[in-house]
Computed example of a mutant assay.
Amino acid sequence: MAPEQARRYRPRLVDEPRPTTFDVDAVNERGETVPTAIAGEHPLTVYLDKRELVTLMTLGAAPAHLALGYLRNQRIVASVDEIAAVQVDWETDSVAITSRSLAEHGTTIWDDAERGEALEGRLGKRTVTTGCGQGTVFGDLMEELDRIRLPGEKRLTEETLYTVMDRVRRHESIYKVAGAVHGCALCSNAGEDRGEILRFVEDVGRHNAVDAIAGWMWLEGVSGDDKIFYTTGRLTSEMVIKCAQMGIPFLVSRSGLTQMGWDIARRIGITMIGRCQGRHYLLFTGRERFIRLPATAFA
């Protein structure tokens, strides 16, 4: 899929996905030894201008996008234009991100006193979330929610929702082979391609899959205002916040949600739909943006 907006600048990427599944022997209920696929899991330590930020446990399918999305969603770097290079090295289980400041001027992001102090404060203030694995949101993200503005004029039809659900169900996935992973999809909500999957990512933690899609959107200059975000995982506060940061007004899941996720979605104005299975769904927030088919219209 070609990016929606041509970018004049792209950081240099050295990306190397890891194998997503491995075959091991298991013994079934009849005592038979059977080769069985299991999901990969690898540590990936993220460095920014030679400073260690975090170690993420990941499937390793989209490591560069994951690292970029992590920086974006944690508000550590404001724009992808600040980044000169992203280099993944599985020999050291790391990804090194180099800023343009370091590449062009020899000074790191941390050398600027004011910015360095602000980043230190952001990295030091943590909110532990319910995300699988790392699941931590840095900084005052909760306080930044009121500054997020989602497009109020966008609408999601029931027909498009069913298209998304069907395409995700039929999409080739690691989960069908090995289980043990979460999947996320970014889908179109515009034109003749409504419901089309633009990017699909699986990882051992749902927040990793979200970050990888966020990194891809950042890199390709893809806007979220006419998109639908689908996840197999539960809709927690972290998932809702990240969706809002990506500018996406529609959030869909086959799973349930938490009270804080519901409260934040209402506060921001996200249309949130959960428990999506077959032709069943539950519309929790943002019903004013949702258009039902005539046969199932609201009374």
Rank of each mutant, 00 (worst) to 15 (best):
T107G: 08
W218T: 01
V168Y: 13
R287W: 07
Q259K: 14
L66A: 10
I148D: 00
G274T: 14
N189H: 09
P294A: 07
K154W: 12
M239H: 06
F250Q: 02
E82N: 10
T21D: 04
P43H: 10
H280I: 05
S253W: 06
R147N: 10
D15E: 11
R100V: 09
R75T: 11
M246G: 00
C243H: 00
Y281K: 08
T107W: 07
D263Y: 07
A178V: 09
V137W: 09
A214K: 02
L235D: 04
K125V: 12
T92N: 07
G256Y: 01
A39P: 01
S188C: 11
R115C: 04
S255F: 00
D263Q: 14
A6D: 15
E143M: 06
F290N: 02
V24I: 15
V54M: 08
G179M: 10
L293P: 03
R275D: 10
D49L: 01
Q87C: 04
R292T: 09
R18T: 12
V137H: 06
L141R: 14
V14F: 04
E41G: 09
D112P: 00
I273K: 08
T107F: 11
T58R: 03
T285K: 03
A295Y: 15
Q5P: 02
Q134V: 09
R199V: 12
L145E: 10
V95G: 01
N28G: 02
G69I: 00
P19I: 05
I273F: 07
G286Q: 01
L44I: 11
Y175K: 12
K242G: 09
P151K: 03
T285S: 13
P151Y: 02
L123W: 06
V34D: 10
D140E: 15
